[in-house]
Design a protein around this nucleic acid. Structure first.
Lengths: 140, 140
DNA sequence: TTAGAGTAGATGCAAACGCATTAGTCATCA
DNA sequence: TGATGACTAATGCGTTTGCATCTACTCTAA
C-alpha cells in the first residue's frame, strides 16, 4: 500500500469521524447537514449562483440538488429566478429567512469545528489547508 | 473565520472533489462506492467483523448498513453468521467472491487514488496522513 | 433470580437519492 | 436560416436512506 493510499484512507476516516460527530450535535433544527451545506455555499457568494455552479460545490447528483432546491424554495429559504442572460439556467439566492437560518446554525457549528480541530497545532492547521487545497485544485 | 474553519472547509472540498472524480471512473461494476467501502473495510480484517464495529468505519446509519449488508449477503459477497459469544450480534465475513470482487475493483481504484494524490510531495503525503490521523483519534 | 437498564441488529415507513431520460435553450457552422 | 451537438435544469421511476421503533439478548445489582 502506497503512502498516497494511506493518506487518502486517513483523510476519509477523519472526514467520516468528524461528520458523524457534527451530525450528532443538536444544532441543525429542521435542516439536514446537506441542506445546511447548500445554504452555507450560497451564503458565501453575494451574487446569485447558478444551479450547475452550486452543484460543483456540493456532493450531490444534479437531480438530487434540483429537488433539494425545490424543497428549500418551498420552505422559504431560497429564491429561484430565471437567469435573464441564459434562459436555460436559474439564479439562486438566499432569502432573508434563509440567511438568518444559516447564521443561526452556522455559529454553533463553527464553534464545533473549531473545537474538533483544536487538537492540531497552528502549523498543522496551515499545512492541512494548503495540502487539501492542492488536492481540490488538481481536477483534470 | 478561524484557521480551523478554513482548514475544515478545505478538507471537505478536497473530499468532495476527489469523491466525485473517483465516482466518475468506470471501475465500479455493479457496486456503488458505499458498497465497495463495506467490502474494503471487511477485506482489511481477517477476523469476522461485528455489525456495530463495521458501522464505526462507514458513514451510514445503522439501519442503512443493516440493509446494505442484507443486499450484499443476498448477492453473494458477504456471509452473515450469528456470533456464538453474543447471540444478539452477527459476524460478517467476505465470501471468496466478495474478496475477489473487492480486489478487482480495488486495484484500479488504488491506482486512481495514487494518481490523484501525486500532486503532493512525499512530505505532504506524510503530513496529511499524520494530521488526519490526529483528527480521527480525537473522538470525545 | 430477577427487575431494569443497556446494547445489537432488524423492520415500518416516509423522505431523499441516483440513473436515465426529457424539454428547452444556446452556439456553431454549413 | 436551419440542422446538429452541447448544455442546463426538471421529471419518471425504482432503490436506498434515515428516523423511530421493535425484538431479542446481555449485564448489573438488589
Amino acid at each position: 500500500m502506497t503512502r498516497a493510499n494511506e493518506a487518502w484512507e486517513s483523510l476519509m476516516k477523519a472526514y467520516s469521524v468528524l461528520m458523524k460527530q457534527f451530525n450528532a450535535e443538536d444544532i441543525w433544527g429542521d435542516l439536514t447537514m446537506r441542506e445546511y451545506d447548500v445554504l452555507y455555499q450560497l451564503s458565501k457568494c453575494d451574487s446569485p449562483l447558478r444551479m450547475s455552479e452550486l452543484n460543483r460545490h456540493v456532493l450531490l447528483s444534479q437531480p438530487a440538488l434540483s429537488r433539494m432546491v425545490d424543497r428549500l424554495v418551498e420552505r422559504g429559504y431560497l429564491d429561484r429566478c430565471p437567469d435573464p442572460g441564459d434562459r436555460r439556467g436559474v439564479r439562486l439566492t438566499l432569502t432573508p429567512a434563509g440567511r438568518e437560518t444559516q447564521r443561526q446554525i452556522g455559529r454553533p457549528h463553527a464553534r464545533s469545528v473549531t473545537r474538533a480541530l483544536n487538537v492540531l497545532t497552528p502549523q498543522e492547521l496551515e499545512q492541512l489547508a494548503v495540502i487539501t487545497g492542492k488536492l481540490s485544485q488538481s481536477e483534470e
